[in-house]
Amino acid sequence: MNCTPLDHLLTWSGRILVALILGFVLLPFVVVLIASFNHSSILTFPPQDWSLRWYAHAFEYDDFADGVKNSLIIAAFGSTLALVAGTGFAYVLNRYEFRGKATLHAVLMSSLVIPNFTIGLGLLILAASVSIPRSMGLLVFLHITIVLPFVVRSVYVSLQNFERQLEAAAESLGAAPRRVLFTITLPLLLPGLAAGWLFAAILSFNEFTASLFLVNQRTQTLPVAMYNYVREYADPTLAAVSVIYVVAVAAMLILAHIFFRLEKVLNVD
């Protein structure tokens, strides 16, 4: 291949640009990562001494342990229920023609354009006005509202890519509709459903703004616990928690990518 100096210039400037963008995206995390190993109890940068003591502290601090437990419970229930509801909605949107279909679609997607802040505040006012306590159930409900559009979208794309003729083939082979659903449709949609669930779970686990309005001391989620911690203390514990947090979520995503080929499920390849 003949390369002119201009080609070289473009190739190298392209690589540099990509490196810059990646660096820009990763920079905050790199700072936090370095800060988490700082021995000093004041968040300074760059660190003078190195230590793992803040990691130890992060694991010993009860609010974080409770926060993780609450967040996991909320994410598990919220994303599972959102998956059930979202699959139903996506199925109806994909398979049926009816009046108000566009409206239903818009309503399902609406929480994408409403800030989480507004959703949390709205639900708080609503719950207060009908005297619903700020319980775990209410938080689960909040998280369903927030993650539903992502689940609907993920399942809808899977349904769009689904070969309908496979159902016709099963039917012609004597399978009643319920059998077609359980032996053909659902097994083939499983990767899409799993990816939808996983995304919902991660979003729910990360959610902070709306949850802040609805938690109490007993139900505070990990992000809220972290926020409360940083208001009181300025040591690098939070940096350590952040690193653990990012590593855990990244590991989950990589596993999901290996098992379900996310780019295919999300139709972005």
């Binding site: 003729q165 016709a168 083939a169 012609s172 082979l173």
Partner: peptide
């Protein structure tokens, strides 16, 4: 369809991929 006892070969075969 599922009670007609017919066999169909589809244009794209429609084999169950799983």
């Amino acid at each position: 369809v599922h009670k007609r006892e017919i066999g169909i070969v589809f244009q794209n075969y429609a084999l169950f991929p799983h």
